[in-house]
Each structure stands twice: as structure tokens, then as C-alpha cells.
Simulated scan of single mutants.
Amino acid sequence: MTLTRAGGLAALMCAGTYLFGFALLVTLLAPLGFGTDQIDVQAVMAFNHQRPGLLTVWNTTIYIVNALALALLVVSLSARLRTFDPGWASVAHAIGLIWATLVLGAGMIANVAVEKVSALYPTDPEGAAVLWSVMHSVESGLGGGNEIAGAVWICCVSILGIASRTIPSATNFVGLCTGLSGLATLIVPIGDIAGAVFGLGAIAWFVLIGLHLIRFQRQA
């Protein structure tokens, strides 16, 4: 399997992890308030105690699996864009790997939080709630509370795609809109909405870039 095709499959895997995450977010996890500023910590504690395995699977999929697939996609796209502009392709490469590292770190912290809170909750529910709140804040800072690293990387790839004409225009347009929505997560009043738009836009962009890389490989 070539690096280009592997990158395309990795992009589709990234989209799949986002879809899985959204599916659980709006169904089983909806009452907990994840993805909003209204998280019910006590409900999270009870859910974590009853179904820690589900939260571990969710964290592993949306963070760890996503980060590993993302790293492969970053390398694949950088290798392709480097033929047009080696310098800026290297910058995009670095930013993309930073994003993948942050996402991976967030997943590890989230899974450790599940484990530690599960052990503490039966004897000290209040302490478990405080511990989870602190660890969740760190997790959000790395991989969920804002989307700056991902937004900058997607924008860089899209701009290079436009300049080099190596990526379809529609894909670049979706990428730029997605990246701008990610940057908008810095604006507190619209942070949650911007984050949701970024997530949905990223799904579309991952699918488009994945299909492009796979088709490009078939034509090569």
C-alpha cells in the first residue's frame, strides 16, 4: 500500500471517529451535557461508575484512534504538498503533528480520568467529582475545548492546495470554512457553536480529502 492511499484511508478513518463521537454525544451521552458549558458533573460521575467501559471506548475512538490516523494523514499530505513548496509543506507537517499529539494526549488523560474516578467514586463521590473536573479541564484544553491547532493545520493544507492546484477546489473551500470555524472557538459566546461547526466541517473535509487521495492513487 502506498503512502498516498494509506493517507486517504486514514482520512476516512478520522471522519469515522468523528461520526462515532457525534452519534454517542447526541444519544447515550446527551443527558450528561458533554460538548456544552452545562455539563452535569454528578450525572457524569454516576454514568462513569455504571458504564466506565463505554466512556473508555468513546475516548479511545475519538481521541487515540483519531490521533494515530491523523498522524498518518498529516505525513501523507505533507509528502504530496512538498513537491510544490517544501518549506510551507514542512510548516503544515509540523502543525499537523502538533495537533495529533494534543489529541493523543487528551485521550490518554480522559481514559486515566475514567479509571481514577471509577476507583474513587464509591468511597468519596465529592472527591471524584473534583478530580474529574480538573482532569476534564486539562483534556478540554488539549483536545476539545478549542480547535486552534486543527484549524490552523486544515487552513494551511487548504491554502497550499489552492496554490498548488493539487487538491480539488471544493475540498479546499470546505477546508477553509472548517478552519475558520475552528479559530472561532476562541470567541467565548459562540465557542460551542463554532466547535460543532468545526466538527461537522471536519467530517466533510476528511471524507473529501480521503476520497481525493484514494482516487489520485488509482489514477497514478
Rank of each mutant, 00 (worst) to 15 (best):
Q42V: 08
G7L: 11
T27L: 08
L19I: 11
T36Q: 09
G141Y: 00
Q50V: 06
N111D: 14
L28W: 05
P86Y: 09
S90N: 11
V103I: 14
L186N: 00
C155N: 10
A149R: 05
G7C: 09
I214Q: 14
V91W: 04
F34A: 02
L68Q: 01
I203G: 02
A23E: 09
A196S: 14
C177Q: 00
A113T: 05
A184E: 07
S137V: 02
V188Y: 04
W153R: 06
Q42R: 09
A106E: 01
W58S: 02
T171Y: 01
I190G: 13
Y121P: 01
V65I: 09
A92L: 01
E115F: 14
Q50S: 12
V91K: 07
A202C: 10
F84T: 06
A94F: 09
Y121R: 07
A67T: 13
S78Q: 12
E139C: 00
G53C: 07
P189I: 12
R165K: 15
A23Q: 04
I62D: 01
Q50F: 02
H212G: 01
L160S: 08
P122M: 09
A184K: 00
V103R: 05
G33V: 12
W132D: 04
A94Y: 06
F173T: 13
G210I: 11
P31G: 08
G143K: 02
L142N: 01
F198P: 06
L142D: 01
I39H: 01
R80S: 11
G145T: 00
L211C: 11
G182Y: 00
A204F: 07
M135C: 01
A46S: 11
R51W: 14
Q219Y: 14
L73P: 02
G16C: 07
L180G: 05
S164P: 03
I214D: 08
P122N: 08
R5Q: 12
I109C: 01
M13A: 13
A69G: 08
W88L: 13
C14P: 03
I203T: 10
L54F: 08
A106V: 03
